[in-house]
């Protein structure tokens, strides 16, 4: 495994809207792109037994997660004709309403970009060793489960 080729997808805290806008802007020089597809995961204020989720605290097994993400990236590029792909996942406490996952795929045509984006999001949910602890407004908590 080439460590240098592995990108660090994790950032502490929520993903700011400005970061997403800048990421879009950076692609204006790549004029072979005809379509971008973006997925944004936002922390939802779920209600469980009359308690409302105030935030999710994300932790990971970083070394394994980055290797896994590298594998996902390779498999997606082998399957789809993408120009580029970017993934950012938050760690630490992310409040309800804040963005915790940003997946961005670009291609010549829309179908490729959209299909690849969807597949990456699904693979991240199932394969990345990341855990979300849902913290309620009264400071009690439960461990999130992906559906």
């Amino acid at each position: 495994m080439n460590e240098k080729k592995m990108k660090d997808i994790f950032m502490d805290g929520p993903i700011p809207a400005g970061f997403i806008a800048d990421s879009i802007q950076k692609h204006s020089t790549k004029t072979n792109i005809g379509a971008h597809s973006i997925f944004l995961g936002q922390v939802r204020a779920d209600e469980l037994l009359d308690r409302k989720v105030a935030a999710i605290d994300y932790t990971t097994y970083k070394e394994m997660a980055l290797e896994k993400m590298h594998e996902i990236r390779e498999s997606i590029f082998a399957k789809y004709e993408l120009t580029c792909m970017h993934v950012h996942h938050s760690l630490g406490t992310i409040n309800a309403g804040e963005v915790c996952l940003f997946v961005f795929t670009s291609s010549k045509h829309r179908k490729t970009a959209m299909d690849a984006c969807e597949e990456v999001v699904e693979l991240i949910k199932v394969e990345l060793p990341v855990w979300g602890k849902e913290i309620f407004e009264d400071d009690s908590y439960t461990w999130k489960t992906n559906k």
Partner: peptide, 10 residues
């Protein structure tokens, strides 16, 4: 050896 509970990222 790592013990990994069900993943819940994203």
């Amino acid at each position: 050896v790592a013990l990994l509970p069900p993943f819940s990222g994203g």
